[in-house]
């Protein structure tokens, strides 16, 4: 019901309801292929077409930044909407490949939280790199609550693991050192801040027995008892806990990474694209159906009222979890990865 009304209101606002050409309208959406595309088609695209008459053509894409660059160069913009994951989004914004969105069309009632609204994109999905704990290995009566606790090897002895890259870890170190979430990237942007992060990392270095590379590793390590505390991807920890290993997520200090939907500059069906984005971002019923299959939620308002609490509280965009995490600043890392990675590699070998 809600979906329909939202879309209809959007459509009316766009003045499309009166247009006889409506039924022939078609937009091209670029995104992940495979199973995820099928889920998207079933949950979002079909009902959207039914409600608005706007047909959706999905194309699977990777390397989207270079594809966008190509479209920009040739002037033949093939997509109306595209998914932009991880570092693609800030890069596309910086290069001017995507247009500023008209938020009045997408969310006229301002129902989305600020974190879901970017000048150039709508949050499509989220996942977090969080602190995962083997609860059975905790000292009696103690609970790990923060990265400061992770650093506290006296109170919480035991082997630890971290990901082998500077991204997130420098943030975790600063959080452990008492930098407030809001100031993280301000501090990290300075040489002194970076030194501070590495200095803090020095303290934990010899207690970290594994510097992991793939998402499967920390899960394996936790389940084998090779490490007690580690950074990990939230979805995998939830799965591990379900399979019987006493593992728990500490959301406090988690790094929330967001993927976006955006409209390429030069796209032809701007209005329809906005209508589609609006449907993607706002409909809680659809979001609930989606999250039950794919645990990477967006910020659809009311989503957490539609799913069981036990399911909601392990998702990254749950209001309680959003509150205590920091948003990974991908833009910062696109600029600084090369230099910091070099420093990280050298630091690791010392």
């Amino acid at each position: 019901m809600r979906f329909k009304s939202t879309v209809l209101s959007g459509a009316i606002a766009l003045g499309l309801a009166a247009s006889p050409a409506l039924a022939e309208k078609k937009i091209v959406v670029s995104g992940s292929g495979g199973g995820l595309a099928k889920v998207m088609t079933a949950i979002y695209d079909k009902p959207f077409t039914k409600a608005t008459g706007i047909e959706i053509r999905r194309v699977a894409s990777t390397n989207r930044v270079s594809l966008l660059a190509g479209m920009e160069k040739t002037g033949r913009v093939l997509w109306d909407v595209t998914e932009l994951s991880g570092p693609e989004f800030p890069l596309s914004v910086a290069k001017g490949f995507v247009r500023a969105l008209d938020w009045n069309l997408i969310d006229p009632d301002n129902r989305l939280p600020a974190i879901a609204r970017d000048k150039y994109g709508v949050v499509a999905a989220s996942f977090s790199t969080i602190l995962a704990v083997r609860t059975d290995k905790l000292p009696k009566g103690k609970k790990m609550k923060s990265w400061a606790d992770f650093w506290d090897v006296k109170t919480f002895p035991g082997p630890r693991a971290l990901r082998n890259r500077p991204v997130e870890n420098l943030e975790f170190a600063l959080l452990a050192d008492g930098v407030p979430t809001a100031d993280l990237y301000k501090v990290l942007a300075t040489k002194a801040g970076q030194d501070r992060a590495f200095k803090k990392l020095d303290q934990i270095k010899k207690h970290v027995v594994v510097w992991w590379k793939t998402g499967a590793q920390p899960i394996q390590l936790l389940s084998d008892g090779e490490v007690y505390y580690t950074s990990a991807f939230n979805g995998r920890v939830t799965k591990l806990a379900k399979s019987g290993t006493p593992a728990e997520i500490v959301w406090n200090g988690g790094a929330l990474a967001l993927a976006y939907y955006a409209i390429p500059k030069g796209a032809k069906n701007i209005k329809e694209a906005h209508a589609y984005l609006s449907a993607l971002a706002l409909d809680a019923d659809r979001a609930a159906a989606f999250v039950k299959i794919v645990p990477y939620p967006g910020f659809a308002p009311g989503l957490y009222g539609k799913i069981p609490a036990s399911m909601g509280k392990v998702l990254p965009t749950h209001p309680d979890n959003v509150k205590v995490q920091f948003k990974l600043n991908v833009g910062f890392w696109v600029k600084n990865t090369e230099a910091l990675q070099e420093r990280w590699d050298a630091w690791l070998l010392k």
Binding site: N164, K205, V209, V210, Q217, D345, L348, L349
Partner: peptide
């Protein structure tokens, strides 16, 4: 990467990383 410690990085890792970047 899977069984080694922090000092066991191989050049192939660095190459792969730079190709990605």
């Amino acid at each position: 990467a899977l069984v080694g410690g922090r000092k066991d990085a191989m050049l192939a890792n660095v190459i792969a990383h730079n190709v990605e970047q």
